[in-house]
Amino acid sequence: MNIEIIAFGIAKDIIQGKSVAMNLALGATVSDVKKDLIRDYPDFQSLASLKLAVNAEYVSDDYILNENDEVVLIPPVSGG
């Protein structure tokens, strides 16, 4: 199934863009997304503890994804 990863802040640097499409097996979880991101973008390891949002909700790592879900990566930003 296809999902879209949308990045904010420093995560844009890591995936080298605002979004990236990912193809996952049926029944894949948020944890699988993190594993694939680390495989494709080793720097993502530093953000692996980040809570991800699916569509508009923060979810836990065992959340099971559905076709066309939007996974949002929002690292903290500190500037003020």
């Binding site: 420093i10 530093s46 503890s49 500190s78």
Partner: peptide
């Protein structure tokens, strides 16, 4: 929102 801070170079 952010339970764990990422390493400083990520912020």
């Amino acid at each position: 929102l952010f339970p764990t801070p990422p390493p400083p170079e990520m912020v």
